[in-house]
């Protein structure tokens, strides 16, 4: 297995000049991807793949130990089915709940991801963000989901954003770092591309669209642009970076379109949870309903799928 931890690249381009994007062309491309028809075995395979890529998430001010335990249980035992179902990839929680989650998923293969760095706004000094990160890692987080400083980004302080990610990356140690761009606050696809480049050069293991607290969250055009950035980075540096669209993906059909997009833009080597995740709280049950529909031929009711 390849080492899954990326390092910052000290030699990076001038971030003022990054690749430009034509939004209409991107919409055409993603709309064409949604025309792909995923049927039968391909559908079943895709649905199982999607389940196994989910970061089951709870990020509420009202989160409690019990709430997190229930969710972790769901991540491990998604549904009682006639076939063997995978677990989700990870659970995603606030740092203060990492310890609880970690204990609950132990031995299941489900990882614990923690949002850190003054999530979701990122409006805190760097030392606070570093402390936040180090705390989450010390509590046992396998993965850290950080947010970039969008204010600084909009001010054109691209190197500040880069340096900050580098610092957080170092604080992560063995934990994999997902860098949240919060694309809903960036304003254009050109800026999504720029932020993607900054994050990857700063050593991101994943780039992630959104916190889930801002609308719009993940969209196909935004994800497409980020996937293209990942592909360009891979072509130039032979370094794989993962992708995590988060927020707003709640149906199996949409999830499958995302997977087709990953396949066509990056290739099948990205089609596993080392390199692709869905940040979602409601997606799992819709995927499960679709799986049961494939198995039984009957359309399903939400009452038969556990809500945790």
């Amino acid at each position: 297995m390849k080492n899954l931890l990326n390092k910052p690249l000290k030699k990076h381009p001038d971030f003022r000049h990054t690749t430009t994007i034509d939004q209409v062309g991107v919409l055409e491309r993603t709309s064409r991807i949604t025309k792909r028809s995923i049927k039968n075995e391909a559908k079943m395979q895709g649905l199982k793949m999607a389940l196994n890529m989910i970061d089951l998430t709870t990020l509420e001010g009202a989160d409690t130990d019990q709430k997190v335990r229930q969710m972790c249980n769901k991540a491990k035992n998604l549904h009682v089915s006639s076939i063997k179902l995978p677990t989700t990839a990870a659970v995603c929680v606030y740092p203060s709940l990492v310890k609880t989650a970690k204990k609950e998923v132990e031995g299941s293969g489900v990882k614990v991801a923690a949002v850190a760095t003054a999530f979701p706004s990122g409006q805190a000094p760097l030392d606070v963000k570093l402390a936040d990160t180090k705390f989450a890692v010390s509590e046992g987080a396998d993965e850290i989901d950080m947010v970039i400083s969008r204010g600084r980004f909009h001010q054109g302080e691209y190197n500040y954003v880069y340096d900050e990610i580098c610092a957080i990356k170092e604080a992560c140690g063995k934990a994999r770092l997902k860098v949240i761009l919060e694309t809903g606050e960036l304003g254009s696809l050109d800026k999504v591309r720029k932020a993607s480049d900054i994050a990857m050069y700063a050593g991101a293991d994943f780039i992630k669209t959104s916190t889930g607290k801002i609308s719009p969250a993940a969209t196909m055009p935004v994800t497409y642009v980020m996937l293209q950035a990942i592909r360009d980075f891979y072509t130039q540096h032979n370094i794989m970076v993962g992708m995590k669209p988060a927020g707003g993906i709640s149906t199996a059909k949409v999830a499958l379109h995302y997977l087709i997009m990953v396949k066509e833009v990056l290739g099948e080597q990205w089609l596993n949870n080392n390199w692709f995740r869905f940040g979602a709280s409601r997606l799992a049950n819709d995927v499960l309903m679709q799986i049961e529909k494939q198995l039984s031929g009957a359309y399903q009711s939400a009452d038969y799928f556990s809500k945790d």
Binding site: I38, K39, N40, A42, K43, Q45, K263, E268, N272
Partner: peptide
């Protein structure tokens, strides 16, 4: 394809 799982589209 080698190394990783292949995901081919079924006829539609």
């Amino acid at each position: 394809k080698s190394k990783h799982t292949s995901w081919d589209l079924s006829p539609a």
